[in-house]
Amino acid sequence: MNAFVLLVVAITFLKGFIVRRKSYGFVASMIAVIFAILMTLVLLAVGSFSYGILGYLALPAFIWYRKNIEQT
């Protein structure tokens, strides 16, 4: 199911590129960051690692989208 979340994030990004709407990238990067925070909590709680933590990589994208979304 963790893989499913990452897949949803990826497809949402992809749709954003196809339909040329920033909103998709914005939401996708937000979900990625939330998921990364959650996976960090899981790591701390039970010690199991998930690649979802890599979602932090989407943080700069999220900040960029947040700044630029209003000009869509």
Binding site: N2, F4, V9, T12, K15, S23, Y24, V27, I31, T72
Partner: peptide, 21 residues
């Protein structure tokens, strides 16, 4: 902006499932 994506015809339900997970 949020509604466009969260209520997307195809992605809405998958995103919901991701949140539920």
């Amino acid at each position: 902006v949020f509604d466009e994506v969260f209520m997307d015809r195809h992605l809405g339900i998958p995103i919901f499932i991701a949140f539920m997970w």
